[in-house]
């Protein structure tokens, strides 16, 4: 992940590293809300204040992008290491530089699958409750809504014939009713991308599917729900679900 992050940020002109890091350390120290108890962490109040300085929309995809950039372990918590590593790599040691940086990332995001994938994957650990291995379904659906429908997202999971995201969430809420594990989280992105490439699902192989069982079930449901003529030019055996 680090090499990838380098790759897209290497163009920026960074001030000398040690100066940069010391500036960031100072900035970090100032942002801490409970410096005595948590000397190396900015907790929720501090983070929120900081995000407001940066003018980051707390309910939008921007928030997830910044959390990934600073490698936040959980929502609203910033570690010293993540803060300094994240900003020093892009050479942004002032709030205004940081704002500019974020604007730049957000501008290119709609066509930047690499960054989006990093943000998507980081959202899983970010959104997990303490000590849990999986993401609560409730939270997962919230994040999916942000990630798959934000105007800045390169993967807006909906097509003229099929409201994929809505159906997906409805299906999980009705049938799955369980936490979303890492595999399902990761595979959902892959699946969404495939759906956008070919919404007729000509590539779907129900016999030999290696997708998680939940996705198998979802595809069956999609076949049932979609009007017949939308998929009429597919092979007949898949139409048996109708």
């Amino acid at each position: 992940i680090n090499t990838l992050r380098f790759a897209y940020l290497s163009s920026s002109t960074a001030p000398q590293n040690s100066v940069l890091r010391s500036n960031l350390n100072t900035q970090f120290d100032a942002l801490r809300d409970e410096p005595r108890e948590y000397p190396d962490t900015i907790k929720i109040d501090g983070s929120m204040a900081y995000f407001q300085q940066l003018a980051v929309d707390l309910a939008g995809i921007e928030m997830l992008v910044v959390s990934e950039l600073l490698n936040c372990p959980t929502i609203g918590e910033i570690t010293r290491e993540g803060f300094i590593d994240g900003w020093s790599k892009v050479g942004a040691d002032t709030v205004s530089k940081q704002k500019t940086r974020i604007t730049k990332i957000m501008k290119s995001l709609p066509s930047d699958h690499t960054t989006f994938t990093l943000v998507y994957k980081h959202t899983f650990p970010l959104g997990r409750a303490d000590g849990k291995k999986a993401l609560q379904l409730e939270n997962a659906t919230e994040f999916w809504r942000i990630l798959f429908s934000s105007p800045s997202s390169p993967v807006r999971w909906s097509t003229p014939t099929t409201p994929w995201l809505d159906w997906w969430i409805a299906y999980l809420e009705a049938e799955h009713k369980k936490d979303v594990n890492k595999d399902l989280w990761d595979q959902t992105l892959k699946f969404a991308e495939e759906c956008l490439k070919d919404e007729k699902l000509d590539w779907w192989d129900s016999e030999n599917s290696a997708w998680p069982g939940v996705i198998d079930g979802f595809v069956e449901r999609v076949y049932e729900k979609r009007p017949k003529d939308a998929t009429a030019d597919q092979e007949g055996d898949e139409m048996d679900y109708d």
């Binding site: 291995k133 999986a134 594990n181 890492k182 595999d183 399902l184 998680p212 069982g213 939940v214 198998d216």
Partner: peptide, 10 residues
């Protein structure tokens, strides 16, 4: 079997 694979992935 797929369910078991899912469990083992988890």
């Amino acid at each position: 079997i797929k369910k078991c694979i899912d469990i083992l992935l988890e």
